[in-house]
Write a protein that binds this DNA or RNA. Structure first.
Length: 645
DNA sequence: GTAGGGTTAG
């Protein structure tokens, strides 16, 4: 046997796997055992004329259900139709990308004693490869070769695809092509295109691009599919210049482009912020005679929406309607989502009605956006109603739906309702992600319920969902704000020991926690340890937090000193820094110094914030301050920073 | 009768 690579795993027997559940294929198939010998002449007749006709036509446009029915009819008829007819059927199902069904049908054939031939094996190998189940494909290859069939270039290309899709065998894929050549096979454009695609799958972009030149050297011209793979691969990774060059190259090589390839590049340009280039290419494709389709429009419309270019987006919508390119659920969902994010819920609802009027069925994504819209406005009951509506329409909520609602309830301080939803979600088999869990943890801490917050954290870990730095920061903050500094410190220590990369934000939370617990000295030690370590620079919030801590303890000199240090060689003080200091001065009753600081703050372009103004208001009421302070804070005699710029 | 690919929305 000339196949040196008769892989070790081929020794493993092809395991029959019934991938479909009971009730689908099983019931479609005949039950041979119940047909007694005398009955079989009546039970098993030939194929109907209709089915013969279908098979003659190569099963064009056949639906999956019909194909499965036909298979049932075929295995009932005696004698069995030839393997060629079965192959036609398997091939048709494979074209629908229903690889599981193909595998299952092949298995049923085997059980009925319908012998596979080279093509049957080829189809099955292809299906396993498409499902990234290389070992099964190799097992069939072994079996096939044992029976004396030698794989041809088609089967080898399928196998190559299997290696490419396998998580760890891309280098074996590269080697396989060389091996093919050694064994006297001539790789064709499918071979190279498959490998190029595989390299992209493993993010080996430059190798993928370089392979095109290599294939030309080997006498293999790239075709439209090759360019499709290349253009998509580079666009998805932001190399839109390269994609545009590829379009030109296609033209010079007289390879006719198509609407999909243009749409791919347009979408790439949109995603990587070259909106106007996308619009240019859009008109260029029209000039070249390629008619855009709904997908082309959808890319552009959602992109324009994301940039807030509403009138351009709706212009394109009217364009497409005028040209009889019908908007679909994606078009409407994109527009609805964009309006929701802009807070224009009314417009979003109008679009929803419009799509119903056009008999376009909203899907989960559409409802998710609308639910999000209500959540954003804290209209939780309406959000829940929308949720019920979608369920009643047979539209299945997914983890985004639940995540959105849970987030809404938590933000509206209704963490218990959020938790109820979370339980419901788990019951129907949807898994929460890090964000969902983190939202709930935050909700419980904000409700002062540390116990449940920690419980959710534990559940998260045991469910195998990894807490991230945000989860930890929220936990630290929650513990500190609920008077559990000791516990927070313990967690903080664990974090420092872990591989997690801490941000300055984490340290600021701890410094604030220590200050609030009256442990300003500890906070100051931590603050200084930052500069000593040198890895983490305190930012303006860290400084302000520390200054605020000093002020709270009446350590005026320390606060002033840190403020000076900040101005000399730290981060620039911001409105928060000034307001923190000003409130401290005002509380001290130091009017002159307060006024001085206010003036300085104004000269930097900041003004009094809400809590400073409310403090001044209170002090005016009990007569400790006069109105001039309020004027200083809110009246604007100085040019603002913006107008100076 | 068998092989490769690409576009849109949360």
């Amino acid at each position: 046997m000339r196949f040196a690579f008769a892989f070790a795993s081929t020794r493993r027997r092809f395991v029959h796997r019934n991938v479909l559940g009971k009730g689908d294929l099983r019931t479609a198939l005949p039950s041979i055992s119940i047909c007694g010998f005398r009955g079989w002449r009546r039970a098993f007749s030939g194929l109907s004329e209709d089915s013969r006709e279908r098979l003659r036509n190569g099963l064009r446009d056949i639906k999956l259900d019909d194909a499965v029915d036909l298979f049932g009819e075929m295995v009932k008829s005696r004698p069995f139709p030839s393997i060629i007819e079965f192959n036609k059927l398997l091939s048709a199902v494979a074209k629908m990308k229903e690889f599981d069904v193909v595998v299952s049908l092949g298995e049923q054939m085997q059980m009925l004693g319908i012998a596979h031939n080279l093509y049957t094996y080829s189809i099955l190998i292809n299906c396993f490869c498409r499902r990234s189940e290389l070992s099964f494909a190799l097992a069939i290859l072994g079996k096939m070769m044992k029976l004396g069939y030698e794989p041809d270039i088609v089967t080898l290309n399928s196998l190559l695809n299997g290696f490419c899709r396998h998580g760890k065998r891309i280098s074996d894929a590269v080697a396989l092509v060389d091996q093919m050549v050694e064994m006297g096979y001539q790789p064709n454009s499918v071979t190279f295109t498959t490998l190029i695609h595989g390299l992209f799958l493993h993010n080996r972009v430059s190798e993928a691009v370089a392979l095109v030149d290599r294939m030309v050297l080997k006498g293999c011209q790239p075709d439209l599919v090759t360019y499709g793979v290349l253009v998509n691969g580079v666009c998805k990774r932001g190399h839109t210049d390269l994609a545009l060059n590829l379009l030109k190259k296609m033209e010079s090589e007289k390879i006719e482009a198509d609407v999909v390839i243009y749409s791919t590049v347009i979408d790439g340009l949109c995603k990587y912020k070259h909106v106007d280039d996308a619009l240019d290419l859009f008109s260029e494709m029209e000039k070249k005679g390629f008619r855009p389709n709904v997908v082309t429009y959808n890319s552009l419309i959602s992109c324009l929406c994301n940039y807030g270019r509403w009138s351009d987006a709706s212009g394109l919508l009217s364009d497409m309607i005028e040209r009889n390119i019908n908007p679909d659920v994606v078009t409407f969902s994109a527009l609805i989502d964009a309006f929701v994010k802009e807070g224009k819920l009314l417009e979003a609802e109008r679009l929803y009605e419009e799509m119903i009027r056009r008999s376009i069925n909203p899907n989960t994504v559409t409802y998710n956006s609308l639910i999000n819209g209500f959540c954003m406005q804290s209209r939780l009951d309406e959000a829940k109603q929308m949720f019920d509506l979608m369920v009643s329409k047979g539209c299945l909520p997914n983890s985004v739906t639940y995540g959105t609602l849970i987030n809404g309830f938590c933000k509206a301080k209704r963490v218990e309702d959020g938790m109820k939803l979370f339980r419901e979600m788990s019951q129907i088999g949807l898994v929460g992600n890090t964000v969902t869990y983190t939202t709930l943890i935050q909700g419980f801490y904000e409700a002062g319920d540390c116990e449940n917050a920690q419980q959710v954290f534990k559940e998260m870990v045991s469910a195998g969902v990894p807490p991230n730095i945000v989860t930890y920061n929220i936990s630290l903050d929650g513990l500190c704000n609920n008077g559990k500094l000791e516990k927070a410190l313990a967690v903080f220590q664990d974090m420092q020991k872990s591989v997690m990369e801490l941000s300055i934000f984490t340290y600021t939370i701890m410094i604030e926690g220590m200050c609030k617990a009256g442990k300003v000295e500890d906070a100051w030690d931590l603050f200084n340890s930052l500069s000593l370590k040198g890895v983490m620079k305190p930012d303006v919030v860290t400084y302000t937090t520390m200054i605020s801590g000093f002020c709270g303890k009446g350590l005026k000199q320390e606060a002033d000193a840190l403020f000076r240090e900040m101005k000399e060689d730290g981060p620039l003080p911001d409105s928060g820094t000034y307001n923190t200091l000003i409130r401290a001065r005002l509380r001290d009753g130091d009017r002159a110094e307060s006024a001085e600081l206010i003036k300085e703050m104004r000269s930097c372009g900041f003004s009094g914030d809400a809590s400073t103004i409310s403090l001044v208001g209170n002090m005016m009421c009990d007569g400790r301050l006069d109105k001039s302070f309020l004027d200083m804070l809110s009246w604007n005699p100085l040019p603002s920073k913006a107008s100076v710029r």
